[in-house]
């Protein structure tokens, strides 16, 4: 077996760029999906039936599908639905957002449900509007319960971004697979890819543990 690890070093800038795109994709998805999740959770609780039904359908559909399928589906269906030629990046971002918003919605829903009913009533009794009750009283308290779950979701998302490589979004996985097929340095590049994910993901996983210890609900 002859191995040539220099390929990893010589493609370091490409790999770094891919890694940066992975982080960007993760951050953007989360940035959109946290408000998206809150909105969906609120819509599910709406007294207006069509709204709650739509939100329930949205959440149940997009959290019960393989992400890879969602990525392909977005790739083929989005251009037809919107009539626009969307870049792979936007398509991948959309698929990730659909998926993660659905998860976040469940996270927020159970966080909100964990707050005693009387808390909301105390706010209403002071003359607060429902929006004020939610923003001033429910959300700040639910946040503590929601944060650890969101942190776990973040790490899953970081890993899941690798799946948009199948529609040629130039993030880490796609970049590494490309270099692999051009250079035929399969073992070296795949190992480098795994190592870079590990280097980035391991501290995140540890951070999640710390957040769970700090904020986690103790029984």
């Amino acid at each position: 077996m002859n191995l040539d690890w220099s390929i990893v070093w010589s493609s370091r800038w490409l790999l770094l760029e891919g890694a940066a795109l992975t982080v960007l994709l993760t951050a953007l998805t989360m940035l959109i999906s946290v408000p998206g999740g809150i909105l969906l959770a609120l819509m599910r609780g709406s007294r207006f039936k069509p709204v709650s039904l739509f939100a329930t359908g949205f959440v149940e559909l997009f959290r019960n599908l393989p992400l890879l399928l969602l990525v392909y589906w977005a790739f083929y269906v989005m251009p037809v639905l919107t009539g626009l030629a969307l870049s792979p990046f936007v398509t991948g971002l959309t698929a990730l957002c659909l998926n993660v918003s659905a998860y976040n919605s469940e996270t927020f829903r159970s966080g909100i449900a964990s707050i005693r009913k009387g808390q909301g009533e105390a706010g209403l009794a002071l003359g607060m509007s429902r929006a004020q009750v939610f923003g001033e009283i429910i959300l700040p308290q639910a946040w503590r319960r929601v944060l650890p779950v969101l942190a776990s979701t973040w790490v899953s998302l970081f890993k899941d971004t690798s799946l948009v490589s199948v529609i040629a979004v130039g993030e880490l996985a796609h970049t590494a697979m490309q270099i692999r097929s051009q250079s035929f340095r399969v073992l070296e590049m795949l190992t480098a890819m795994a190592a870079i994910y590990w280097l980035m993901g391991y501290p995140q996983a540890k951070l999640v543990d710390w957040i769970h210890r700090k904020y986690g609900v103790r029984e």
Partner: peptide
């Protein structure tokens, strides 16, 4: 409601 004050059995202070 602003003209009615309410006190709850479980206080319901905002923690």
């Amino acid at each position: 409601r602003q003209r009615m004050g309410m006190v709850f059995q479980n206080f319901e202070l905002f923690p």
